[in-house]
Design a protein around this nucleic acid. Structure first.
Lengths: 344, 344
DNA sequence: ACGCGTAGGGTAAACGCTTTCTAGAATCGT
DNA sequence: ACGATTCTAGAAAGCGTTTACCCTACGCGT
């Protein structure tokens, strides 16, 4: 149970001053080779490691990146976390992970903790229930983080305003929806049902918008009867298709707001005796890990989760003029599988 | 761009000494109500937060728990991480997450980083390729962590020896295999194929051992022809069953070393025109999230991943005599689904 | 009236490192 | 050969807290 050695012990053993030891360890300042060797031997001898807290207190940076998200097991978040962790390691930072389980108070609490920790960057992933009170407190914390030299990064949630001191990284939801719809259109489909998400949700509004723009680009009139709404569950997809069928709405393809909805839609179609993709083509969104496992394997809009995480860290760590309020939109691509078939 | 306020600023604004501010914030030492109020107002006014590094430097603990694992997206690890994060938060600790991707050097590097950080606990999950050199260095780091007041926790990997200064938390692999095999035996099966993992892997050796002991308990002779080995992939399960079938080995049930192998086995059986569970019962291990999604839904040995994570943190944070070298084994249970059927 | 225990609060010494500032020694140009 | 650089390295001033130590009142028993 030896006390852990300090830089002073190393200095004593090497017969130099603490300043010299510090310089050998940091490696920037010129040190004579002989001295360097002596110090390094002492370090090894004593099994010395620096005290990160002392270093952080003395210098400026803590080398910590904080990741705040809903939970850790949902693949969506797990993949983003993976990207963040990867890039953080790449940049010689450690990665602090916290979960909110959707509790805004907890999120604010965490932001405060991160301020205490002097995290280089705080990355907030996904949405919370956005109230005015929340916005206001959030703004204060963002300012606080900025003053503390931290960067706040909002991931996959819309920017809170141009004057909001934060970096925003999001997916190009509209673009992905545009591609997906175009894919169906150029396969000859004209009657494309859009199974939307909750009304007013920025993510799903954007996807709906992309759908509309694609139709317009192909000079296909937008038929409101083809557009439905619901939540983001499998059940919702099931019911939306059921309703469409019951109402006698005709369609040869379905564009679902996400893969869960798509899975439900496929179930409903099968239940109605329609084959996917022979009778109806289906395309999803998010490219969830289970998408390839469905029968038929679901074609879906792939979101670059890991890249989102990596980009967030990269932007946050990059210093320089104007780097504190960037807004980046990540492109998507279609993962083609077996649930879409050209109309003859 | 205001500089962030220090405790001195708060003291000045409240008209008290820094010691008093510190005492108000820590809340242990008696402080007059009027004074307390003044200080709290100043804190709010200045939007002051303590500097965690200064606190850690001055006091002893850093309030950080470190989690080191293979990766972040594999459900096995993600669920453990979830448990760790949960318990860490519960205990007012922050959770540092690092990944190794199986690189032992990286793992040792991380342990060193954690020593620098004065982490309260370092939790190592899963196996690495265990070489002698690795063991030896690991031992040094464990000692180092102990000297630094940290706890080392080995999760789901066998203890490195009784004199090894670490806590060990693992699954009862043998027990789970015993239950699984017993389940098949008491359903009337006598010819049970065991699709094992790599030879020499402590995890899979234990599972094989449980299988043997169950057979013995039921006075069923162990037939070496029924025991095969391979890696832990789906392909491996496929090939092992194919081989068994080709060799004309008779069996009515299969116990697979894990769910991937089980999935491969089911595929091979189906390919051979055998129905699961009508002709052959199959049971897996790990209860991976996809187990219920297979057709038929796979009966599997459920491992309490989250509990493993929580237990690791709990044990590590618990102080007191002998608390530094405990060895805990977590029980398992069978998640019954549709892939096992009693023999008439 | 006096000593004393205690609540309340200030002073200053760590905690372990980085980073100026300073200065001796070595090298160099002329 | 001598001042001017360039290397090297030490002394010491922080960085922002906590905490041991000290001091002042005040209430109380005797």
């Amino acid at each position: 149970m030896n006390k852990r050695p300090t830089i002073r012990d190393v200095a004593a053993m090497a017969g130099v001053s603490v300043a010299t030891v510090s310089r050998v360890l940091s490696g920037d300042y010129p040190v004579a080779n002989a001295t360097r060797t002596k110090v390094q031997r002492a370090v090894r001898e004593l099994d010395y490691v620096v005290n990160a807290h002392a270093r952080a207190l003395s210098g400026a940076t803590s080398n910590v990146v904080a990741l705040v998200m809903y939970d850790v097991v949902t693949p969506f978040f797990a993949f983003i976390a993976s990207g963040v962790e990867y890039q953080a390691t790449e940049s010689d930072r450690l990665c602090l992970v916290c979960t909110t389980h959707g509790d805004p108070d907890r999120e604010l609490e965490i932001v405060k903790l991160m301020r205490e920790q002097h995290a280089d960057a705080v990355i907030l992933v996904g949405g919370v229930n956005m109230t005015d009170d929340y916005r206001e407190r959030m703004y204060r914390y963002a300012k606080g983080l900025e003053d503390a030299g931290s960067r706040l990064v909002l991931c996959g949630r819309p920017s809170l305003g141009p004057d909001f001191p934060a970096i925003t990284v999001e997916y190009d939801n509209a673009g992905g929806a545009f591609s997906a719809t175009s894919h169906l259109l150029s396969s000859g489909h004209r009657r494309i049902a859009m199974l939307g998400g909750p009304i007013g949700n920025t993510t799903f509004d954007a996807r709906l918008d992309g759908y509309r723009r694609a139709l317009e680009a192909f000079r296909v009139p937008v038929d409101p009867a083809l557009i439905t709404h619901g939540d983001m569950s499998q059940d919702s997809g099931f019911r939306q298709v059921q309703r469409l069928l019951a109402d006698g709405v005709e369609f040869t393809a379905v564009f679902a707001a996400n893969d869960f909805v798509a899975a439900g839609a496929m179930r409903a179609l099968r239940a109605a005796g329609k084959s996917v993709p022979d009778d109806v083509s289906v395309i999803g969104y998010d490219d969830t890990p289970f998408a390839p496992e469905l029968t038929p394997a679901l074609t879906s809009v792939h979101l670059p989760h890991e890249e989102l995480g990596r980009t967030a860290v990269k932007l946050a760590l990059q210093r320089g003029e104007g780097s504190a309020r960037q807004h980046v939109m990540l492109g998507t691509h279609i993962a083609m599988r077996d649930s879409v078939r050209p109309l003859i």
